[in-house]
Design a protein around this nucleic acid. Structure first.
Length: 299
DNA sequence: AAAACCTTCAACCGCTCATCA
DNA sequence: GTGATGAGCGGTTGAAGGTTT
């Protein structure tokens, strides 16, 4: 938070600043002006919004305030366990693409998710990686989702290996070396009665196919986010434009951005930092909004 | 009670990309 | 082709409030 700066010199938002522009925290009066203007006129050029609404703010600041705070469809308050799950899953898929993640979390902003990740989740990951055996019943006797989220979802490598004789190199986007995902949606599968069935097709070169059954019995395949043997890359699609090879759900070895990963794939893959490369994000994510139990309500 | 430390999160900054003249 | 401008994004900052010592 910044303290209100009523007479900050112009600038800081790029471009010329003909008049003094306020910086820092927004006052309730400013919020009122911006909200009223936006509701009456809708979004236009942000610098026009700032000017026409009578705000001594740069357009960039107005945009941020509207998107992160004043938008009527914003949810407020703590993240629900389902949202936490989804954030973690999406981050494993997308990395720090907060806007992409936010686009799939109704009522949440990229800034909010980013803050949530950097404060809450990162801390939890750090705790997990530094605690030898955190997944004890005494840690989370109540089944509170906030406390058991990672013990069920993300396990330290040692624990993971205890539970699985095979490697599970999936969702390994997070650079944290000791973190690996097992059940991407523990809450979906535990608190909502949706069984989670990793459909076992484990190979050391390709990992396993994972997913879960929706309530209508259709199986949702979680995108496979690890390097796979070229013999399994038939899912590769050739884009119409320029014959460029694009990737749907699978990586292929001829993706130069992934070659280094392929070299180290297998048992140690979970230590590799993941890059989305040039994937078709929409292909990758197309099923995400249809997750069950994500009928968020705007408060 | 007070100081020190920690956490949260609103807001800023700098950058990239798209559009337009 | 190029420069100006605006939108949007991710990283970072820093004040407020909470917690611990």
């Amino acid at each position: 938070m910044r303290k209100p700066d009523a007479a900050a010199p112009g600038g800081g938002c790029g471009g010329p600043a003909p008049t003094k522009l306020r910086k820092g925290l927004w006052s309730p009066e400013e919020d009122d002006k911006l909200r009223t203007y936006m509701l009456n006129n809708g979004q236009g050029c942000w610098s026009d919004v700032a000017r026409n609404a009578g705000l001594q703010r740069c357009g960039k600041s107005c945009r941020l305030r509207w998107i992160n705070y004043l938008r009527p469809d914003l949810k407020r308050g703590a993240f629900s366990p389902q949202e936490e799950d989804l954030v973690i899953h999406l981050h494993s898929l997308l990395g720090n693409r907060w806007s992409q993640i936010a686009a799939r979390l109704p009522g949440r902003t990229d800034n909010e998710i980013k803050n949530f990740w950097n404060s809450t989740i990162k801390k939890r990951l750090k705790n997990l990686s530094s605690t030898p055996s955190p997944n004890t019943s005494s840690d989370s006797p109540s089944g509170d989702s906030k406390s058991n989220l990672f013990p069920t979802f993300l396990l330290g490598q040692d624990q993971q290996q205890q539970q699985n004789s095979i490697d599970f190199p999936i969702f390994a986007a997070d650079p944290s070396p000791s973190v690996i995902a097992l059940d991407p949606f523990p809450l979906l599968s535990t608190t909502h009665g949706i069984p989670f069935f990793p459909s076992a097709a484990p190979t050391f070169t390709g990992g396993v196919e994972m997913g879960f059954y929706r309530e209508d019995d259709s199986f949702f395949n979680l995108p496979l986010l690890q390097s796979v043997n070229t013999t399994t890359t038939t899912a590769t699609a050739t884009a119409a434009t320029g014959g460029e090879t694009k990737h749907s759900n699978y990586l292929i070895n001829n993706n130069p951005k992934m070659e280094s990963m392929n070299g180290g794939v297998g048992a140690n893959f979970i230590h590799e930092e993941f890059s989305m490369g040039e994937w078709e994000l929409e292909d990758l994510m197309k099923d995400v909004p249809s997750f069950p139990c994500l009928n968020f309500q705007v408060q």
